[in-house]
Nucleic acid binder design. Sequence first.
DNA 1: TATTGTTATACTCTATAACTATA
DNA 2: TATAGTTATAGAGTATAACAATA
Lengths: 159, 159
Amino acid sequence: MAAQRHYEDLARQLSAIGAVKRGLGRGLPHDCPGGSAAVLILLDRHGEMRMSRLAELLAVDMSVTSRHVAHVAEKEWILREPDPADKRSRILRLTPAGQTKVNELSELSIRTLTHYLHDWSDDEVVQLSTLLARLRDSFGDCRAASARLPFEETTRTPA
Amino acid sequence: MAAQRHYEDLARQLSAIGAVKRGLGRGLPHDCPGGSAAVLILLDRHGEMRMSRLAELLAVDMSVTSRHVAHVAEKEWILREPDPADKRSRILRLTPAGQTKVNELSELSIRTLTHYLHDWSDDEVVQLSTLLARLRDSFGDCRAASARLPFEETTRTPA
DNA sequence: TATTGTTATACTCTATAACTATA
DNA sequence: TATAGTTATAGAGTATAACAATA
């Protein structure tokens, strides 16, 4: 358990990190906004999956996932195939064009980070990645309808 | 200079960290959205300042800053006083009510992080804070109109 | 009845551009 | 002319709720 002051610091740093995300976002191709990029990258990383699984990985509501997926499907970067085991479901899969886009995105993020982090050591980059992964993990599934905080009553109305 | 593969990992983790930010955001008071909270916290942290300086610290365009500031001013959490040295400028300062709000925000972030990161050590929290600060620093002022990447021509149109 | 996914609607955050007042 | 700040407008991301189809 860390000291309160350190939690405060971390909260401030997390709030400020949006600037970096926006900086990375500005490097994206004009036809592939952040939401689309995230869908493609997760499908590349984890292989084909259903909408609900993707929503979980994106950590957003399924309605949001549906919109992003509709966009990349329209670009023909993914296919939405019927799930033989459950007719309500759809299986999402990258197309060859989608794979090409993923490669492009990958190269872009490498170029951008190489530019900004040229003076970081290998170790530092890995350390930050690792801590961010752990942070994400500690928060678990903190989507609106999923996890509730233990002191909800004093904050945003639960509905 | 880190290996390309590590940059890719970091890009993925950064993209996923939005979930944590949203989780923290859901704990905010209903009358104080993220933009307002950021303004208050920076004024508390750095003391009174001009709009342009605040925009720089927020790492957003001044038009955005102006909107957030107008909101917190309407709540009477800050004052916008004329700058005697430059009549175009305004000096922003927390009111006592604003200070109270800052304290409330601080307590909220501590409660939320204590809840989610209960099994993190002091050292780990500090390490993550430090790396995030360094990351932000390495990106410098990467706002849209400020910094330009060296390979712009293949990405979003420069204008 | 419950679950998967879609759509409509609303809210927050951000950027660009046009504008004003002052330097 | 250039700069500080405001406002109007547009675009991206997200959440809630209502809905259709299937389990």
